[in-house]
């Protein structure tokens, strides 16, 4: 009996800090390509406001699936316009707004591979045996890369080389560890420390990736979430975005 009581006392003490934690925080669902700039933006915002931002980074499609199942996010920064618009239509989100415009590149850790005319030549180079691409359904950067390949009539031809990653971040991970020879990455990857060690070619034929964000209706503190959404447009945040190649 005594032991039992002690056990529950210890348990209560252990659990207490968790439930008592009522500090101000925003849960953000962020598309994987925007991870690096978002970290910087969060640092700026937290220094200014004392509000904690807790980000979850993964593919837009995955985040979308979580949100419609009721995941407790306050804001959603997608890598497309489609999914925020769908959430808005279903009454799950406020009006979406565009926060960044990205571009697809083909990135390689091997600098020699970029000594060609354009990305199509690089992709078809026999030395490039494996090319990573993000999931074509759930990752918008994957979808855009696929469309570009199809438009150029290369989709079927490159099939044997293609390797699929779950998110655009995993594509870059495969490419930077040289598990693959090249990868269809986000332009922003080229601006990271790791990204500068390799080379890239722009995939000009790919559509630009218009990235929209929205405040979710179920946000715990709407006003707080709105303020953060506004901050995404501030000159400070814009400077961070520009430094990672977003328009």
């Amino acid at each position: 009996m005594k032991r039992c009581v002690t056990f529950f006392l210890v348990l209560t003490v252990l659990l207490c800090p968790l439930s008592a934690e009522a500090e101000e925080k925003i849960m953000a669902a962020v598309a994987a390509n925007f991870m690096k700039p978002f970290e910087e933006i969060v640092r700026l915002y937290e220094a200014k406001t004392n509000i904690n931002i807790e980000p979850t980074y993964t593919s837009t499609g995955r985040l979308y699936a979580q949100i419609i199942k009721g995941a407790p996010y306050d804001v959603f920064l997608a890598a497309d316009e489609k999914r925020p618009a769908l959430l808005h239509k279903d009454g799950l989100a406020e009006n979406p707004f565009v926060y960044a415009k990205g571009q697809v590149i083909i990135w390689s850790a091997n600098k020699e591979l970029c000594q060609v005319k354009d990305w199509k030549e690089m992709a078809q180079n026999p030395c490039v045996k494996k090319i990573a691409m993000a999931n074509i359904e759930t990752a918008p950067y994957g979808t855009v890369s696929m469309i570009a390949l199809k438009d150029m009539g290369l989709w079927e031809k490159l099939q044997p080389k293609l390797v699929f990653a779950q998110t655009i971040a995993q594509v870059f991970q495969y490419a930077s560890t040289e598990s693959v020879d090249a990868g269809f990455c986000a332009y922003s990857s080229a601006f990271t420390d790791e990204g500068r060690k390799g080379c890239f070619l722009e995939v000009k034929e790919a559509q630009g990736v218009t990235q929209a964000a929205c405040v979710l209706r179920r946000a715990a503190d709407k006003e707080m979430a709105d303020k953060f959404a506004t901050f995404l447009h501030s000159p400070e945040a814009d400077a961070v975005k520009r430094s990672y190649g977003y328009k």
Binding site: S59, R62, A65, N135, E137, T138, A165
Partner: peptide, 25 residues
Amino acid sequence: LMVGGSVPGQTKVASIAIYEAVEAL
């Protein structure tokens, strides 16, 4: 998930295919 690369016919096994199907709704 980490080493497969989800290549259809090579490494896209049932568990990965199910995961991707659920993710894509």
